[in-house]
């Protein structure tokens, strides 16, 4: 099992001829990800590490009907167009790595994808990995190992940090999903946690949140109202961030009185979710809750 990406995932890389697309195509292939084809307008007919490149998503899918998901490395100016193209081809999920996409663009493709029942991971995210199965993203695979902890995070490197600690604690991960650091993103915490609930391989879930928005508060509300059967632990970054300033991620901003770390910590604690004070505690907390 695992969620979102697994052995059956067949990947299309959009923006495959750019430096990031090229580099990560290689890294994904080395990991064993089934990268089937790539798309860059105007570069049809080329090959990238043996992967054929097409001008249109439609062409790629006609030639390789097994393609079922996409990863987007297309620069921000053109990224929305690429995502719409993937939605029209019914690829699911679509992982959007690109940072700096205008919010108005994300609002459109995220709503369109939801209407069509297609899952968008990102934008501005590291993608997803199901260790031992596949990786559709840019996460450094050697920090991950197959196991029972699901991780869902708004951050990149902080996810690697915590995944590494979980690996070292011999717990391992079922799937790690970086849902993105932008204000408008596709999948949210609640949707991913619902998937982890249904996944038999996942024994517990780690939430890595940060300041900005109210996704953590909404998750806490969901846990309080609906309940979850699997243990959930959390870490929230940005306790020392000043209001009104964007902390690296476009979405990491305490604005209009909303999105502070305190509000998130309080909501999660009220929902009975243990929150780690420092990142390395996550592994301990998870171990403790899993053995209880």
């Amino acid at each position: 099992m695992a969620i979102l990406v697994d052995e059956s995932t067949r990947v299309l890389v959009q923006g495959i001829t750019g430096s990031e697309g090229r580099f990560h195509t290689k890294v994904m292939l080395d990991y064993g990800t089934k990268v089937v084809a790539g798309v860059t307008p105007g570069k049809g007919g080329e090959k990238v590490y043996g992967v054929p490149v097409y001008n249109f998503v439609e062409e790629a899918v006609e030639e390789h009907p097994e393609i079922n998901s996409s990863i987007v490395f297309v620069p921000a100016k053109f990224a929305a167009d690429a995502v719409f193209e993937a939605i029209e081809a019914k690829l699911n999920p679509i992982v959007v790595i690109t940072e700096h996409i205008p919010v108005s663009d994300s609002l459109e493709f995220v709503n369109y994808a939801r209407m069509k029942g297609i899952k968008i991971i990102g934008p501005n995210c590291p993608g997803a990995i199901s260790p031992g199965k596949t990786k559709v993203g840019i996460l450094p695979a050697k920090l991950f190992t197959k196991g029972g902890v699901g991780i869902v995070s708004r951050s990149g490197t902080l996810t690697y940090e915590i995944a590494d600690a979980i690996t070292k604690a011999k717990l391992g991960q079922s799937t790690c999903v970086g849902i993105g650091g932008d204000p408008i993103i596709g999948l949210d915490f609640i949707e991913v946690i619902k998937m982890f609930e249904k996944d038999p391989e996942t024994k517990g879930v780690v939430i890595i949140g940060e300041i900005g928005g109210d996704m953590e508060e909404k998750l806490a509300e969901y846990i309080t109202k609906k309940g979850v059967t699997k243990p959930v632990v959390a870490y929230i970054a940005g306790r020392t961030a000043p209001p009104g300033k964007r902390m690296g991620h476009a979405g990491a901003i305490v604005a209009m009185g909303k999105g502070s770390a305190e509000s998130k910590l309080e909501a999660l604690k009220e929902a009975g979710v243990p929150v780690a004070e420092i990142p390395s505690q996550i592994a301990e907390l998870m171990k403790r809750t899993l053995t209880q």
Partner: peptide
């Protein structure tokens, strides 16, 4: 990475220091 940088700031504060920047 933004998350790791924020977490680093938070740790500095946690151990009694004050971050000068991010």
């Amino acid at each position: 990475g933004a998350g790791l940088t924020m977490a680093s700031m938070d740790l500095v504060a946690k151990f009694g220091g004050k971050p000068a920047n991010f």
